[in-house]
Computed example of a mutant assay.
Amino acid sequence: MTNDIIVSIKPKYCDLIKSRKKFNEFRNFIPKRGVPKNIWVYETAPVSSLKYLMIVDLPVQFPEKVDVRGYMDEEFNSGLMHYKIAYPILEFYELSNPLNREELLNIYNFKGPQAYIYLDSYPLLNKYLIEINKIKIF
């Protein structure tokens, strides 16, 4: 059993991470099994693909502060956003062969998560993602 999770992220936020303008993933949860190291990213519509992997550091919980480096960091530190947990993104990878919505549903019986889902809930998908080539963005 691992702590790897899959989350859904809108395309505009994926683009901000990929272009190094967003350095933290803001959420309101720490998974019940504990802090994940790997967060797999399902990019929502219109892309609708499991496309990225984020390697994250230990989360920062408001009122603790994050380093102000990019998108929404100041808002997090000031408490102005409704998210109270920031996962610092250490590394970001793009899957060499992202899985689209139809493949995920038909092959793995997977639908994009509302909050998060543990990767090991889908053993075949877990095996595929471990083996797939990942292109390091940073």
Rank of each mutant, 00 (worst) to 15 (best):
E91V: 10
L95K: 12
N106P: 08
Y83T: 07
N77E: 05
S96G: 06
L119P: 09
P113Y: 05
I132K: 04
Y122N: 06
L125N: 13
P59F: 01
F76L: 05
P46Y: 02
L53Q: 03
Y71T: 14
Q114R: 12
P98A: 04
N77G: 05
P98S: 05
N100P: 08
D120K: 09
I89C: 08
E74G: 04
N77W: 00
E94N: 07
L53E: 02
F62G: 04
R101L: 12
H82D: 12
E94S: 11
R101D: 11
N109W: 02
L50S: 02
D73Q: 07
Y87V: 09
F62N: 13
K51E: 13
L105K: 15
V60H: 04
K111P: 02
H82P: 15
L125G: 08
E75S: 09
L99M: 11
I117F: 00
E94F: 00
A86G: 01
I107N: 09
Q114G: 08
R101Q: 14
L90E: 11
N100S: 11
I107T: 12
N126K: 11
F76D: 01
I89S: 12
A45P: 01
I89F: 12
Y93V: 02
L80S: 14
P63Y: 01
S48I: 02
K134L: 06
M81P: 06
V60Y: 09
P63Q: 06
V56A: 05
H82V: 12
Y116W: 07
G79M: 04
Y128F: 13
S48D: 02
I137E: 04
F92D: 10
Y83H: 04
P88K: 06
P98W: 01
I55D: 08
A45F: 02
Y116E: 06
I107K: 14
M72G: 04
V47G: 00
V56R: 04
K134H: 07
P113N: 04
V60K: 09
E91H: 14
P59E: 00
D73T: 11
K134Q: 08
I130S: 13
E64W: 00
I130A: 10
E102S: 12
D67R: 13
Y83G: 00
V60T: 10
G112F: 10
S96P: 05
I89P: 07
G112V: 02
E94A: 12
Y71V: 10
A86L: 02
E103H: 01
P98C: 02
A86S: 08
N106E: 13
L90V: 11
N77Y: 01
S121H: 05
N109Y: 00
M81E: 05
Y122R: 09
L104W: 10
E102Y: 06
I130D: 13
I132C: 09
L125H: 13
L129C: 07
L95D: 12
A115S: 15
Y128T: 14
